[in-house]
Amino acid sequence: MHESILVYRRRRYLWAALGLAALSLLAYALHRTPEPPNGGTWLGYTLGTIGALLIVWLTVFGIRKRRYHSAAGKVEGWLSAHVYLGTALLVVASLHAGFQFGWNVHTLAYGLMCATIFSGFYGVYAYLHYPRLVSRNRGNLTLEQMLDNVATIDNQCLRIAKNAPDDIREVVTSAVNRTQVGGNTFQQLSGRDRSRVVLPSGDGSHRLRRNPDQERAIEWLAERLSRTSDGEVSATINELERLLASKKMMLKKVRADVRMQARLQFWLYLHIPLAVTLIAALLVHIVAVFLYW
């Protein structure tokens, strides 16, 4: 319904970026020097200056984003330009270096720059890919509402299990208590269900088992149902099975939401520190070049 950052204003910043890259390539192709191309020629300095200014400008995005009173263009336009010109920086900086790399601070700056840009590429992918999936997964619910739903189902399970035979009550209670959502960054990113449940085994002892999607608990209840002849108990189990099935659905949604939200956000925790480190390395690179000229 609306234009994304990639097509913003008929891709004006794509054309700008392509123009910058093409001009740099043309100059590089036409440039003739006695030594192999490097940062020390007039073209090398020119490209280096353009690249350094670009890097500074790209970090200014973080400031513009927080300048809420600013009337200097829409943030969407800034992001569109940030993406395309940031990509063009790859070309400009590579040509500036003349593809000469080594184990030194200069190449460190280059490497950090590439890492920053590639983490940004992932960001573009995530921003364009996940929102639609997140919205579809959520329907009209917020994450908070989904968690509320899970809690409501849990309470219903506990209430029903309160009057059930001991083994059923214990299994249901442990399934509720040991349901897990979220976790640290990696657990969120993987979206793996680390829920557990304590099940009685034949010898009277209890075992802690993995319970992804509540399936182990559902299986156990199904098996317990087959062993019972008490009408009231089987009605309770049927009701619990129904509740666990809807909890399973809701938990799947929650987990998918957490996973996708994490993927939408985690890359920024790389992109920003990398960019800050890059600025530091860039300063060292520039100072070093001028000191040891």
Binding site: S4, Y8, K65, S70, A71, K74, V75, E76, L79, P131
Partner: peptide, 8 residues
């Protein structure tokens, strides 16, 4: 609207 980075 001006602050929306993705144009949503």
């Amino acid at each position: 609207v001006r602050a929306c980075p993705t144009g949503a």
